[in-house]
């Protein structure tokens, strides 16, 4: 599978934690850790869920009782 190459700036503390995580053996390498982290973030912040939350906000704002 063809993979994209990115360049990113990370806060030093976050980078240190990531490297330590890899060194401890919890991930094969930094690439794997970043891919897995990104995948999990995208799964828990799905566009469909966000849209549903925002539209329920609008309903509360327009017609709520408080």
């Amino acid at each position: 599978m063809e993979k994209a190459v990115i360049q990113a700036q990370l806060p030093p503390e976050l980078m240190a934690r990531a490297l330590s995580f890899v060194e401890e053996g919890w991930a094969s390498n930094l690439d794997e850790l970043l891919v897995e982290s990104l995948r999990r973030f995208l799964e828990s912040h799905s566009s469909r869920m966000t849209e549903s939350f925002v539209m329920s906000d609008v309903q509360w704002g327009l017609t709520g009782n408080d």
């Binding site: 828990s44 869920m49 939350f53 925002v54 329920s56 906000d57 609008v58 509360w60 704002g61 327009l62 017609t63 709520g64 408080d66």
Partner: peptide, 22 residues
Amino acid sequence: LAAGNLGIRVHGTIGVLVRSVR
């Protein structure tokens, strides 16, 4: 998502803005 699953009522910035009209 987490809060909703724990039974907490949740809203956000958009809700607060729209509520201000009401």
